[in-house]
Computed example of a mutant assay.
Amino acid sequence: MSDISLVKALVFDVFGTVVDWRTSLIADFTKWSEKRGIKADWTALVDGWRAVYAASMDEVRKHPERGYVILDRLHRQSLEKLVAQFSIRGLNDDDLAYLTTGWHRLKPWPDSVSGLTRLKTKYIISPLSNGNVALLTNMAKHAGLPWDLILSAELFEHYKPDPETYLGSARLLCLSPEQVMMVAAHNHDLKAARKLGLKTAFVARPTEYGPLQKYDFEATGDWDVIAKDFNGIAERMGC
């Protein structure tokens, strides 16, 4: 069994791990569009938006000379292309801003707040997300997420899985990598963290992508903690 006795902080992937982005966005946009009288296939737009998420961050990596671009801006750029692609008409700039900040208004999974609250009694807890600081702060207020601080890719000007994000979080907390545990519903995120010496915890979110889910139904690595939800992680961590 892995030694997790040194862990002092848990850092969390957010989209899909802490919050249910897909259901939240589809419900938000459906309700909003009814009031605005705008018709669109919001499920297709949300799925299409998430599908270009990784590629939009890769563009930032490929062109360091352009400088770091925060996720809100990447989301807006992707949205504008998708709106044209899906021929969604009648949207003004305020509407595009509302849709973009939908990522600030995501709802947590049912166990997220209770599990985080338990973990907070013994450990430092923080997001370690590709979301920018404003996005993560607004989301925490909206969803009642009890973070101790906000750690974001924006602080390191590197998106996960770049090493700078994981090692930067430990550095800012004045901890060694093995004193930090990365929590995620995505095996690739944990693989990148473990390679750098962080401890790892996996929780499955098998409905994250709805019917489009293709992987991450279960742990595919020998992670330090594997639990069915955040309360299960809290139990394993002695909270």
Rank of each mutant, 00 (worst) to 15 (best):
S2A: 15
V11D: 03
F15T: 10
G16A: 05
D20Q: 09
R22C: 03
A27K: 05
D28V: 11
W32T: 11
K39M: 11
T43W: 06
S56C: 13
E59Q: 12
R61Q: 11
I70C: 15
D72I: 07
R73K: 11
L74K: 01
S78G: 10
S78F: 08
L82D: 10
S87E: 11
D93L: 15
L96G: 10
A97Q: 15
T101A: 14
G102R: 09
W103E: 06
H104I: 01
D111E: 08
S112T: 15
S114R: 13
R118Y: 02
R118W: 00
K120E: 00
N130G: 07
N130D: 10
N130C: 06
G131W: 03
A134I: 13
M139E: 10
L145P: 04
L149A: 08
I150L: 04
L151S: 00
F156E: 12
E157S: 14
K160R: 11
S169L: 03
C174D: 13
L175H: 05
M181V: 02
N187D: 10
A192R: 01
A192W: 01
K195T: 12
K195F: 09
L196W: 08
A201S: 12
Y215G: 15
T220L: 09
V225D: 00
A227P: 02
F230L: 13
E235A: 15
R236W: 12
